[in-house]
Amino acid sequence: MELQITTLIENNPSDDGQLLFEHGLSLYIEADEKKILFDTGQSGDFIKNAKALNKNINDLDFCFISHGHYDHSGGFEKLVSEAGKLPTLIAGEEFFKPKYKMADTHGYKFNGNSFDEEFILKNQISLRKVKEEMVYLTEHIMVFHHFMKHTDYEKRNNRFFIKENTKYIPDDFEDEISLGIVTERGLVVIVGCSHVGIVNILKTISENVDIPIYAVIGGTHLIEADEARVQKTVDAFKEMKIQLIAVSHCTGEEGIRLIRQELKEKFLYNNTGRVIQI
């Protein structure tokens, strides 16, 4: 089975400088005779890039949103307004809990989804809330949810909260989901931000499926990590014998530098417009 992943939008510009870019992530995935939109960036500009890259948003089977932050779900309403055929939305069951971030001087700032379940119902969008730890979408495509804590060095940002009634509660990112695609070379894992820790995600997946992880593609949220954490993360990649680390979005310049330095030809910066074929 062939797998093709096209990065529609990401923090950094395309190599030719012709595509739009923004803080966010959106990938167009073609696998197992399915077309999947993985995250929607923050503005909906991924749609313009999709047209430039000859990727048809009307052919989508699924729209997969990794977690409820604006830079991953913000373009969904534009997709709904512009697509003639709406894909099934797949998200964690906790996806619609309102998310906030503690601002330095202005208290709590909303940074969650711009739409709610009423919007989904109004537009007659098929919604699949993932409750299980693992769900098969097809024979070769699966969704992972509820990641266990395996490391003591992957700390979650204590400025992120969810709001329940009138209370702000630390966000443990229970809504976060990742995508797994089985290829001849092994399992390809696609992640949005990895707020729960990229190593926690990969080790949990390894416990659930007896397939070697060949590649990791997406955001690793090492932007706030110190050198010691990045080094332990790289050591975990080596221990799991992962052959391709294609990072995007929230990895951070220092994380990119260290991963590139350590993994050499196994490293790829997955910037806007990049196409990966496996």
Rank of each mutant, 00 (worst) to 15 (best):
L137G: 14
I256G: 01
G92E: 12
Y70L: 10
M134R: 15
T204C: 09
H140C: 03
A50K: 01
I29H: 00
G197P: 06
G255D: 02
D71M: 06
F46K: 07
G186W: 04
M142D: 12
D172W: 10
I57Y: 00
K99Y: 09
F62K: 14
Q4M: 12
G255T: 01
L127H: 15
S26L: 01
S126I: 15
V80A: 12
N113P: 09
I198E: 03
N123T: 13
R156A: 04
F46R: 10
P13F: 02
G92D: 11
I47M: 10
P87E: 14
G44V: 09
E2H: 03
K129G: 15
K55D: 05
K264H: 05
T183L: 06
S66D: 05
H195N: 12
S14L: 02
K232H: 03
A91Y: 09
K35A: 00
I276K: 00
I5V: 15
N123M: 11
K109C: 09
Y100K: 09
I223E: 02
I65F: 14
F95K: 13
H69W: 06
G75S: 09
D210L: 09
E22C: 04
E176Y: 03
E77K: 15
K55V: 10
A52W: 06
L127K: 15
I242E: 09
I169D: 05
D45I: 07
V196A: 05
T151V: 05
S114K: 13
L37N: 07
E77M: 12
T166C: 04
I125P: 14
Y168V: 07
F64C: 14
N111I: 12
I9Q: 01
K51N: 07
N165G: 05
G218E: 03
F64E: 13
I141S: 08
Q124S: 13
R156M: 11
H150A: 05
E139I: 11
F64T: 14
R260Q: 06
D210R: 11
K51F: 04
C250L: 06
F173D: 03
E33I: 14
I278L: 11
V247M: 04
V188D: 00
Q261H: 09
K55R: 02
Q4A: 06
A215S: 06
D32M: 00
S126N: 15
I5R: 00
Y108G: 08
G255V: 02
H106Q: 11
S43T: 15
G186E: 04
L3I: 11
T6V: 10
T272N: 05
G92S: 14
K266E: 01
E2R: 08
N54A: 06
Y70I: 13
L137Y: 13
Y28H: 12
D39A: 10
I201K: 13
I5K: 10
S14C: 02
A236S: 11
V130Q: 00
Q277H: 07
D61T: 15
H221K: 07
E2I: 09
E118S: 07
I5M: 07
K266T: 06
